[in-house]
Nucleic acid binder design. Structure first.
Lengths: 337, 337
DNA sequence: CCCCGATATCGAATCGGTTCGACCGAAGAT
DNA sequence: ATCTTCGGTCGAACCGATTCGATATCGGGG
């Protein structure tokens, strides 16, 4: 079932079969049909490895996701889904690599072995080994997230700094004076995970601007941790009346702990954050949040990547989204306790 | 940066470099070191396409996930994560194909173009085109889920029929006489999605055995649909006191609608289902459910697949898991209203 | 009747690896 | 001193496609 077999059965040379398939040179109508008939009969498909070897491209992109053992958040799942979807529409396959660092075996196979034509990188750190490695190899790549050197690469990202700042201002406008930031996990932040740091920055700036009492706290990406986090916050800061957050996965636990403490949302306590739209709407009550258009972001990343693959010399582009905050059910006027 | 370049710079032939790398023939220590030094210096990695072409295998497995546009459930995400993880441990890469049917382009590329050495197939229907296509090509594959012809393929699955039956018996033991089955979406069930049908069968059998009043209802995989589903059920069947379900994604909505209707769980209403352990534990109250070990299932699927790739003639194996029901917070004695 | 150009097809090189058989020199056996 | 053996290396074929230059055939113009 290789091209030689097709050629033999249709009584032509291998090159003619190739041209019939690709259309890069004219082939007479009768020959064309004869070849097509044989192909249909045998169900022939060109061997992808052979084609990739000769053409120098694999028609595959790599998608680097957070390493094994950590559950994807809803937003990340949205990124993955939209990347896969957008790639499929462009007839590109997607190779998955769950890698945290440069020396991950699957990451190294991917970028070292020319298995992919380009890479979409998720969960980028402020200083990221993988970015360095990719730049060194010259392989086109696009980040969902960006490093401390944003001009050195193409990326799409959410403007966490601005958005968290807006959340704080929104809460302050409602009269809240003591606000906590519920960040992502301590490990991620310690590793230099971008959104974690930018959220801190935006939060610090906004509370300073408004002269608020504030506290920051890291929290792992699950409901139990959300419960523990809120319990600790309420214990240590009894006057707290609001939370700003980028940790969507902790929200169910946050809600639960507040209810447990007898605090009704939004009557006694307010929450505003950054989350995937789908997730924010599904919480109960629905979360007042900047709606991250995860679907769009992944698609845009793939667009940029396709562009860079077509012409690696194109100047770097970036897209920093700051979606509006949708007022839903979790913010209201401060009511001192 | 190809093998010829390495050979030239180390003053040996290409075959010697290859042998030095693979260890398939002895190479003298000095030559070995000289070659290694050059490789390290240039950062050389063998071209994956060339290797795949010659060896006839790609060291890549395909993972067929539900088609684009449908969000993965927590359980499915667990399958994906564990498959990717297990593949990585075996130094296999994972190529993703979001495909519902045989004629999906990405699915066809994958199985037709020899892009992968084997395939893990998710969300299998009772009669599944993709299974037929894979069997026809002879490409090794393993299902997470099985068809109406279970002996024709290797697979791992959850015994939904037995588990839903056990849920019903458990609820009946607690005195519940009017029980509803909350199934997956109508589209999936209509398409012949296995778990949907097997849950129906197990449910029907158990309610018959216990002489219960029963009703079945399909429900899309999200919270809003869960709300609507329960509202409809309570409206049409006022005497309902319990739900059995395989639809974990609808649970947050189910909880919400019950609360809205003034029914406390488990005091006034009981729920028992089949769900990923992680998900069941994170609900509030935690769901009494048969804990699907999603992590194990994916890993087992990959094990079976690796086995079949190594020796396609091995007889088909299957693994039907019926994990115990963990009693958590959602079932209690029936209390007639 | 010969030459020209267009059309359709073929043959061979190439991509970058792996692998088999051949070869060469040195050490050990007879 | 000659024959084997064996460790180490090389050259060439091969995997299955793409693509370039060459060639064969045919009709039309001079």
């Amino acid at each position: 079932m290789n091209i030689g077999e097709i050629a033999r059965r249709s009584g032509v040379s291998r090159s003619t079969v190739s041209y019939a398939l690709s259309g890069k040179r004219r082939v007479s109508k009768v020959t064309q049909q004869r070849i097509q008939a044989v192909i249909d009969e045998l169900g022939y498909r060109p061997n992808a490895s052979a084609r990739a070897l000769k053409e120098g491209r694999t028609r595959t992109i790599g998608l680097v996701i957070p390493p094994a053992g950590r559950r994807l958040t809803d937003m990340q799942l949205g990124f993955v889904a939209s990347v896969v979807d957008a790639a499929g529409r462009a007839d590109l396959d997607v190779l998955l690599s769950p890698s945290g660092g440069e020396h991950d075996r699957s990451f190294e196979r991917m970028v070292g072995g020319k298995r992919v034509d380009g890479v979409v990188l998720m969960e980028i750190r402020l200083e990221d080994d993988r970015v360095a490695r990719l730049r060194q190899t010259g392989l086109p790549f696009v980040g969902i997230g960006h490093t401390n050197h944003p001009e050195e690469m193409s990326w799409v990202d959410i403007d966490y700094e601005t958005l968290i700042s807006k959340c704080v201002h929104h809460l302050a406008d409602l009269g809240h004076r003591r606000i906590a930031l519920v960040n992502r996990s301590a490990e991620l932040v310690a590793a230099g995970y971008g959104p974690g740091h930018r959220a801190q920055t935006g939060f610090a700036r906004a509370v300073a601007e408004r002269g608020l009492d504030s506290v920051q706290r890291c929290c792992a990406d699950d409901a139990q941790s959300g419960v523990a986090c809120v319990e600790a916050l309420l214990g240590e800061h009894p006057g707290l009346t609001a939370i700003a957050t980028i940790n969507e996965a902790a929200m169910p636990g946050v809600y639960r702990a507040l209810a447990q403490a007898g605090l009704a949302v939004p009557r006694d306590f307010s929450i505003a954050g950054v989350a995937a739209q789908h997730w924010a709407e599904n919480l109960h009550p629905p979360l007042t949040a900047a709606d991250v258009p995860a679907d769009e972001l992944g698609a845009r990343a793939v667009e940029l990547l396709i562009q860079r693959i077509a012409d690696p010399a194109t100047p770097h582009l970036s897209l920093l989204l700051a979606p509006a905050i949708s007022l839903r059910g979790t913010t209201g006027p401060a009511r001192p306790r």
